[in-house]
Design a protein around this nucleic acid. Sequence first.
DNA 1: GCCGAACCGTAACGTACGGTACGGTTAAAG
DNA 2: CTTTAACCGTACCGTACGTTACGGTTCGGC
Lengths: 213, 213
Amino acid sequence: MASAIANSEEVFTPRQQQVLTAALDLLVEQGDRLTMTSVARRASCSKETLYKWFGDRDGLLTATVQWQAAKVKAPQVDRWRLDAASLRHSIEQFARDLLGTIVGDVSVTLNRLAIGHAGAEKHGLGAIVLENGPLAIRKRLKPVLEAGREARLLRFDSSEEAYRSFFGLVVRDAQIRLLLGETFTPAEAEIARDAARATEQFLAIYGVSHHAT
Amino acid sequence: MASAIANSEEVFTPRQQQVLTAALDLLVEQGDRLTMTSVARRASCSKETLYKWFGDRDGLLTATVQWQAAKVKAPQVDRWRLDAASLRHSIEQFARDLLGTIVGDVSVTLNRLAIGHAGAEKHGLGAIVLENGPLAIRKRLKPVLEAGREARLLRFDSSEEAYRSFFGLVVRDAQIRLLLGETFTPAEAEIARDAARATEQFLAIYGVSHHAT
DNA sequence: GCCGAACCGTAACGTACGGTACGGTTAAAG
DNA sequence: CTTTAACCGTACCGTACGTTACGGTTCGGC
């Protein structure tokens, strides 16, 4: 129950998921100053049940974050052939996923929550968010990058370094601005355009020149 | 007193600055769950004085952020001649400043605080941090970029766009990881190396090729 | 030396909220 | 029909902390 990061495969009953949904909604609406009473009211359950299921307030928040973060698992890009065009397409797809996720209400809320907790000695939520956000994408992108290097389409020393630059080119200052309270919600088209630009720039840095060596 | 963003040129007496220093120290130590009592104790002043000077808890925090943010004013890079080497040097200098600031304890603390407030309908602190952090650097970098374009050393449509990519290449995922509680403190040398790499990458994207057109 | 203003230290107030207790209701099991 | 367990709704308790009040102390002005 206090394993925090260990088993990210916690299972919740449908009813419990209703409660977590209510908690997440309230979180998006009012930030982390939601009260146990408000969650109970919204979910039409008793506070006693909340404490029975989740232990304490922190347990409820942790469960909410875990549960929501686990839903981010986007489908793996399947069999990509190793030509320049498909590599570019895969990378651009990742960029769209990443950017689309990060500018979403839920992502902003969860990151705010985790950051707040990190400021109070409780790094558990931060680790969960990190693990299921950027790091999840990184884990999925890594084999693509390395296959690209194998095929002499990309050039880099460390896939870690390459990923971090990719992250920077995609996210830029969008995340911190959203976290700090700026309210802008880019349309799907803008996200796609930014993802394409980031992909171009990433390939300009790490791609192997189209001309001969 | 409640003008928030209007006049960022608030003036504080030395004694008041001592109080703000104490508040900032406590903020770095314990995050935003510092109490008015603890600030009063640390600063050896009475709570009554705190309320008299700063109105309420929020006023104290706002004053702290304003006062600290105003200290970030790094020296403008003075007369730079417009050759490729000096342009590169200026950009790299900015990268070092930006990265060095962002990975600092104070920056992390203030950003956490502002993000927490942004999650509670109070965007004032977020605006202040944004204004005095990234945007301040942007404002100073912009003329450099545009002079570079003027001199046919750089190529971009919008200096805004170019700046945002610069920010991404420099900061990457470092800021969000720190905000989420990861504790790593890069040495001066690492910062310099990252700044150099980011500069290279930025020039690879926005620089005009060294060969003929 | 006296006055008033500013300030210190501390005690006290009010309240919001996390956490607990308890009686009432449903519903499945036997 | 009875039992048992899970759960709802609500009242209640304890506490932490923001805010206020107040008596005592320093200090500049006259």
